[in-house]
């Protein structure tokens, strides 16, 4: 019931709000250390989560699915609104144990066989590193943002944030790999109904590719890990 009312309210408010809300669009550029030591632009700019902070919005009702398939998380970068549910479904042929030790959302899905899934609600904003306790190479990032104006970039690095209330908001671009973030921060001013364009620069340093298992230990080599 509550949900219905909420949707009604939102749909009522949407036209009103939509007249005022603006859009932020732009692209993300990532600079990496080239083979000769000189900085060079990274070609594949996917996996960067761009979001605005400063205001909160209620989460959408649907849940986001992070599947485990082929011993990998798909998608490996997901953005959710605070309060949104995420389902971790095992679409693989082996058992996976999805967990995260990040402060914003600690969870342990337990060992799920293929076909089983586990749903967790993430109420706190933050950066959540999702790993599998069995397979060390499985890495995913969950970015819990305060509002719905967020996007995950594709290879071309472009993003469009819609439904942005007018005003000046801080805009972040986070490129998270394992337990390191490359964060780029800027300010964007959105006029009512207008569009703001912004380019965010990220400087990618080499990845810290070691993480610990759900108990805080190093991974032991397992027969089925690869």
């Amino acid at each position: 019931m509550g949900r219905g009312a909420l949707i009604l309210l939102l749909s009522l408010a949407a036209p009103l709000a939509a007249a005022q809300q603006g859009t932020v669009r732009g692209e993300v550029r990532i600079t990496v250390q080239g083979p000769d030591g000189r900085p060079v632009l990274k070609a594949d700019r996917s996996g960067v989560v761009v979001y605005l902070t400063g205001y909160t919005e209620p989460p959408p009702s649907g849940e986001v699915n992070m599947a485990q398939r082929n011993k990998a998380f798909q998608p490996s970068v997901v953005g959710v609104v605070a309060g949104q549910k995420v389902r971790f479904s095992n679409n693989d042929v082996v058992v996976h144990n999805v967990f995260s030790r990040s402060r914003a959302g600690k969870f342990d899905a337990g060992k799920n066989r293929p076909g089983e899934d586990y749903t967790e609600t993430f109420k706190k904003t933050g950066l959540i590193d999702v790993y599998c306790d069995i397979h060390e190479q499985m890495v995913a990032t969950l970015v819990v943002v305060p509002n719905r104006a967020f996007a995950v970039t594709g290879p071309d690095g472009r993003f469009v944030l819609e439904g942005v209330p007018p005003g000046t908001h801080p805009i972040f671009a986070v490129h998270r790999r394992d337990e390191r973030s490359d964060v780029s921060r800027a300010e964007v001013t959105v006029k009512p109904g207008g569009e703001a364009v912004v380019t965010l620069e990220l400087n990618e340093t080499r990845a810290d590719d070691k993480h610990l298992d759900k108990h805080g230990r190093q991974y032991t080599p397992r027969s089925d890990a690869y």
Partner: peptide, 14 residues
């Protein structure tokens, strides 16, 4: 240090 804070997502001042 909190990456959440760096990312602007630290609402509870973690």
């Amino acid at each position: 240090n909190s990456d959440d804070s760096a990312a602007g997502l630290d609402d509870g001042d973690a």
